[in-house]
Structure formats: structure tokens, C-alpha cells
Write a protein that binds this DNA or RNA. Structure first.
Length: 586
RNA sequence: GCGCUUGUAGCUCAGCCGGAUAGAGCAUCGGCCUUCUAAGCCGAGGGUCGCAGGUUCGAGUCCUGCCAAGCGUGCCA
């Protein structure tokens, strides 16, 4: 409907250009939106006001010329000029009824779009370090990222979901060493645990399993482990130096092969947990991309070489720097440290080069808001590599703050005390969890109220939408219990009996769904879909209370049943897109 | 200090590319279950869109300054 009207306006503009009313060179942007007030028809355009200046007339006069130039079309029953020069379109009521038939015919396909057809887009999200289980902060990225990916797919894009696994670097060494130290405790060695190690209970679990499987294979005496290790922070030392020395000790005492095994056990167990967790949350990936792969296959050296050739690298204080400040970053960044090791940023340059080489039309990164300062340097790197940096879209997700009623839930990663995503899902349930995470715009700071999300009352918006779906199913069951049968065709033939204001309103809202879906996808804003669902559910509940569906008149009864089944289809399509259940009874 | 994000009803938030009288939910108050599920519906009250300027036919929306909150500002990842 909307696209059709836009096309009509375009034809009108073209006609006015040939008539000489408008400059043929003039670039015209057709602006059409849903009228907010039904008095203003169904769609409104401000075209005349936009073009008035260029055409050197007043908006209302121009509007009249535009209206005169619009071709006849049976979708439109009336066109009015109103206010300062709005052009208001009134849809033909008969055409409005057709939406019920369209929805029925398209079924699960209704609302899908083809605007992304032929375009490949990659969405990278979550990508949490595999040093521990996912917590509630990652949950928002997971829910938002998968919703964005699913929306893009619904809009016709060829979508590839990817998780970047930071399986290299110092944090992983700290994890491996933490696992080993806990393992030594399992073996019966007595030694202090570093303040900067991973203290979470899950590390003990991994160590326990390792001990069960490998016995004392990795055991070394505590005296040897602790010999000449600089003091930890609580003892007045430096916690970084302390842990680094322990990492080195682990490597020398175990040898690289055994150390590698311990490292791998930690990585594998945590990654398996993360994958499992995400899958239960309805989040799936096409690729798990390993950072270690980049180091092993020479990608990093290759990327740095390209920067070198382009003249963006220089040496200073023993380190190698990337001159990102020449490309908009606030300062230059180290890529190779003075100890010869490459930085995380160097990996990221290679990773983004790899993404570009894979030929995506668009690359979407979903990051926590605390990484926002990182965007300029990555974009700078892409430019330096000669790539089109506009291909990269970084979406930031603000942190979610957990509340239980009025009380803030405290979290601390250091102490290992945090609410995991798994705990949250168990407490709140997958449906409410996803709904709440996606309900807000991603860049909004979010308060996640556990009490509200778990409540089974009218305060909880998830049930409100699901209830609408269940109610339609319930009506159909009632029909059956009364010994009546649905007559689909009879209903379709008499859709014109749907003249109540609630019915007209619902028809309009149903026809909006494809536009909402498309906009939510293109703008990366799944919350728009949630708001639409609440609106649709609200209109349905009002309708339900105002009118009886199972009336004696078979024609009206079936027309109404067809309408509410159309509502059910749209609810189901949108909810399943968001991986939220559509209960048939509640 | 600088940078990014945010500021809309008592609370949590929508508000599409600048458009017509700024909207929901919760909370508060008043109604609706012998009829398809009351996890629902109907109604009422509640606003200086952080503040001050500017741009124009028109600003919650764009620009500038200020105020407030969160985050960032490592040879950490």
C-alpha cells in the first residue's frame, strides 16, 4: 500500500516536471507516512511543502497541481489537501478488507520483505571472552544481536551470524593458570590463589573434572610453583607482576605441550557452556571465529604489512604504532608491544580485514557501550587498509542494570559474584527475558526489573501479547465445542461486514505490519516490533471486549473469525521472529 | 580536561526523513465477569519534552552554549 502510493506520487512529480511546473533537474525525495489522526486519512505526504520553495509557489497551490497529476488508482478513494499543504490519502475501504485474505494466503510468510535481496550482511555479536560464563550484561547483546540478525533475514538479507572467540592473549593465560592452580588444590597442594586470577566457582569445576580425568599428570609441588614469585597485591606487591610470573612458571613447569592441554581444557569447557547457553536462549551462529587462527595463519603479520606499505606504521619507544590519529582517531595506537607481542587491536585489524575479504556488503558489529571509544581506531584501520569504512556499522548496547523491585542487584566480576545469563533465564524464563531485553532501544540505559519480569500479573507486558494469541485460539476451541465449523470462504466473501470501528482499526494495524518489520530491520531497531505487538494486542483485546465473535449470523461470524485469525497470524509471525513462544492456552 | 551516549507524565519508556491537538504501560482514582479466558476492557487525573538561544511556513526531533547522569580516555582484553 505504502509503496504503491509512493509510486503514484513519483508519477505525479514526473508529470509536473514535463509540464514545466517543476525543474526537471530537481531531486525529489518522496515523503509519505501513516496519518496519526484518522481525520487525515490513512497516509499523508508533505511533498508540496517540501517543494514549494523550489517551485516558487505556495504549498497549497502546488498541492493542488500535484493532486491533479496523480493517476487514478482503485486503492485510493479520496485525496484531500489539508492544513498548510498536506496531501492526505484515504484508502478505499474495500481494499482494506483484502489484507485479511493476503495474510491468510501468505501465512508465515506474511510481512517478509525482499529489500535486502542479493545483499550479504554479517552480524557479529556477544563475542564475550571465553574466560567465564555469560552474565546478564551479555544477555542484552545476545537478545538484541540475534533479533537484529533475524530481522535482517526477514527483510531478505543473506545473514551470517558470527561470534569472535578471543581464545588468545593474556586473559586466556590467566584463565589457564587459574585452572591449573585450582587443579593443584584438588591434588592436595596448598598454595594461595592470586587476587587477579579467576575466582569463580566454574574454575573449580573445570579443575575438578581435569583432576578426575588426568589424575596427577599435571601435578607439581607447591614449593616449585611459588619459588621466587613476586608478592601479590594483598601482600604489598603488584598483582599484575604476580600473575604474570605465575603464568610463566606454569609454562616452564608443565612444558608447552602440557600447558597447552590445560589451556585447551579450560577453553573448551567454557566455550561449550557458552554455546549451550546461547542455544537455549534461541541464539544460533553460522561461525565461531577463532582469534588464535589469525595469529597462527599469519593474518596479523599480513595486515600489519599492508599498513606498513600504506605508510601508517612507525616505531617508537621500542613498540610499533599505527598512526590512527591521521585518520580521525584521537591518538595513535600500539600494534606491537616492546616485548614483541601483538596487541588485541592488531588482532582486530586482521579480523576486520578478514571480514572485508569475505565480501560482505555490510558488516554489523554489536558491542557493549563501554567499547565506544574503540570505533574510531577500527574505522581508521579500515580506511588505512583502503576499505570502504561505511560498510562497517557499529551498534552499541548499553548495560542493563538489574533490579529486584526497588533494590539494585549488585554485581562484581572480580569476586566471581555475578548473575549469569543462565540464572536469569531460569528465574525469568526465556520469553520474558528476550522480550524485556529487546523492549528498549539498544542505546537506552536499561533497568531490568526481575520482579516485574517474573510476575505473572497484568504488569508483565509479555503475557499481554501472548494472551491475545491464546485468546484467538480459545475462541476457535469454543467454536468447536459448540459444534459449529468454520467456513473460510463464506467469511472471506463477507469481509465487508467488518464495519465496526474496532474492526476498521485492526485492519489498518494489520496492514502496517510489513512496513513496521521493514523499518525495524533497516534501522536495526527490534523494539519497534515489540511496540507494534503491544499495539496490535491492545486493539485485539479491546475488540474482544466490545464485540462477540461467535454470533448467530454465519456470514458475520466467519468474517470476524477470519479477521481474528489474521491477528493471530501476525502475532505468531512477529513473536516467532523474536523467538518467543505463542501459547494456544494460558 | 576531552570524547561518546542519554535527559519526554510520580516511575519505566515510545515518538518513523522536522509536520497537524506530544503517546503507551505501571502506579493512583472510578466503573465492567449468569454471555467467546478479568493475565482482559472502559473512563479520569497527571507535561515548561533538562535549561537558554538559533535555523524556518513549522522544532520533542536539526545547530550552538550550558546543566545533569552513565561510559570511555592502557604497550588490558
Amino acid at each position: 500500500m505504502k509503496h504503491k502510493l509512493e509510486h503514484l506520487l513519483q508519477q505525479a512529480v514526473a508529470a509536473l516536471k514535463t509540464q514545466g511546473v517543476l525543474d526537471p533537474e530537481l531531486a525529489v525525495q518522496i515523503n509519505l507516512e501513516r496519518a496519526r489522526d484518522t481525520q487525515h486519512g490513512d497516509f499523508a505526504s508533505n511533498l508540496a511543502m517540501m517543494l514549494a520553495k523550489a517551485a516558487r509557489t505556495n504549498p497549497r497551490q502546488l498541492a493542488e497541481k500535484i493532486v491533479a497529476a496523480i493517476p487514478q488508482d482503485n486503492l485510493v478513494s479520496k485525496i484531500e489537501i489539508a492544513g498548510p499543504g498536506f496531501i492526505n490519502f484515504f484508502a478505499n475501504p474495500d481494499s482494506q478488507f483484502q489484507i485479511v485474505k493476503q495474510i491468510h494466503d501468505a501465512g508465515p510468510e506474511f510481512g517478509l520483505s525482499k529489500i535486502g535481496a542479493g545483499k550479504r550482511v554479517q552480524v557479529e555479536f556477544v563475542s564475550a571472552n571465553p574466560t567465564g560464563p555469560l552474565h546478564v550484561g551479555h544477555g542484552r547483546g545476545a537478545a538484541y544481536g540475534s533479533a537484529v540478525a533475524d530481522l535482517l533475514e526477514a527483510a531478505g538479507f543473506d545473514v551470517e551470524r558470527e561470534y569472535y572467540v578471543n581464545d588468545a592473549g593474556r586473559q586466556m593465560d590467566i584463565l589457564a593458570t587459574s585452572v591449573w592452580l585450582r587443579y593443584l588444590e584438588e591434588c592436595g597442594e596448598v598454595l594461595p590463589f592470586p587476587s587477579n586470577g579467576y575466582r569463580g566457582e566454574y574454575v573449580r569445576d573445570i579443575a575438578f573434572n581435569l583432576h578426575k580425568k588426568a589424575g596427577n599428570d599435571y601435578r607439581r609441588p607447591a614449593e616449585l610453583v611459588l619459588e621466587d614469585i613476586p608478592a601479590d597485591e594483598p601482600q604489598g606487591g603488584d598483582k599484575e607482576k604476580h600473575i604474570d610470573a605465575l603464568i610463566e612458571r606454569a609454562k616452564t613447569l608443565l612444558g608447552m605441550e602440557q600447558y597447552g592441554s590445560v589451556f585447551q581444557v579450560g577453553l573448551d569447557e567454557i566455550l561449550a557452556d557458552i554455546k549451550d547457553d546461547l542455544q537455549e536462549f534461541g541464539v544460533g551462529y553460522q561461525h565461531w571465529f577463532s582469534e588464535r587462527l589469525l595469529m597462527d595463519d599469519g593474518s596479523i603479520q599480513q595486515a600489519l604489512q599492508r599498513l606498513e606499505v600504506a605508510g601508517y606504521l612507525y616505531k617508537q619507544d621500542g613498540a610499533i604504532w599505527f598512526a590512527s590519529s591521521r585518520l580521525g582517531d584521537e591518538k595513535d595506537r600500539v600494534v606491537i608491544r616492546d616485548n614483541g607481542q601483538s596487541t588485541y587491536f592488531a588482532s582486530d585489524i586482521a579480523y576486520h580485514m578478514n571480514k572485508l575479504d569475505r565480501g560482505f556488503d555490510q558488516i554489523v558489529n554489536i558491542w557493549g557501550a563501554d567499547h565506544h571509544g574503540y570505533i574510531p581506531r577500527v574505522k581508521a584501520a579500515m580506511q588505512a587498509l583502503g576499505a570502504d569504512e561505511s560498510k562497517l556499522k557499529v551498534l552499541l548496547v548499553q548495560f542493563a542494570v538489574l533490579y529486584r523491585g526497588d533494590e539494585k542487584v549488585q554485581m562484581s566480576t572480580r569476586s566471581g559474584e555475578f548473575v549469569t545469563l543462565r540464572q536469569l533465564r531460569n528465574e525469568v524464563g526465556k520469553d520474558a527475558c528476550r522480550f524485556f531485553y529487546v523492549m528498549r532501544k539498544s542505546e537506552q540505559h536499561m533497568d531490568f526489573d526481575l520482579k516485574l519480569a517474573t510476575s505473572r500479573t497484568n504488569e508483565n507486558p509479555v503475557y499481554y501479547v501472548q494472551y491475545a494469541h491464546a485468546r484467538v485460539c480459545s475462541v476457535l476451541r469454543q467454536l468447536d465445542e459448540k459444534g459449529r465449523a468454520r467456513n473460510l470462504n463464506l467469511g472471506m466473501e463477507h469481509l465487508n461486514l467488518l464495519t465496526e470501528s474496532h474492526e476498521t482499526e485492526l485492519l489498518g494495524t494489520l496492514s502496517k505490519y510489513p512496513e513496521v518489520l521493514e523499518r525495524a530491520a533497516v534501522q536495526y531497531e527490534p523494539h519497534q516490533l515489540i511496540h507494534y505487538l503491544r499495539e496490535l494486542a491492545n486493539q485485539f483485546h479491546s475488540y474482544y471486549n466490545a464485540h462477540q465473535f461467535l454470533v448467530d449470523d454465519d456470514r458475520l461470524c466467519n468474517a470476524r473469525l477470519n479477521l481474528i485469525c489474521a491477528v493471530r497470524h501476525v502475532l505468531a509471525n512477529a513473536l516467532s521472529l523474536l523467538k518467543i513462544h505463542t501459547p494456544e492456552a494460558m
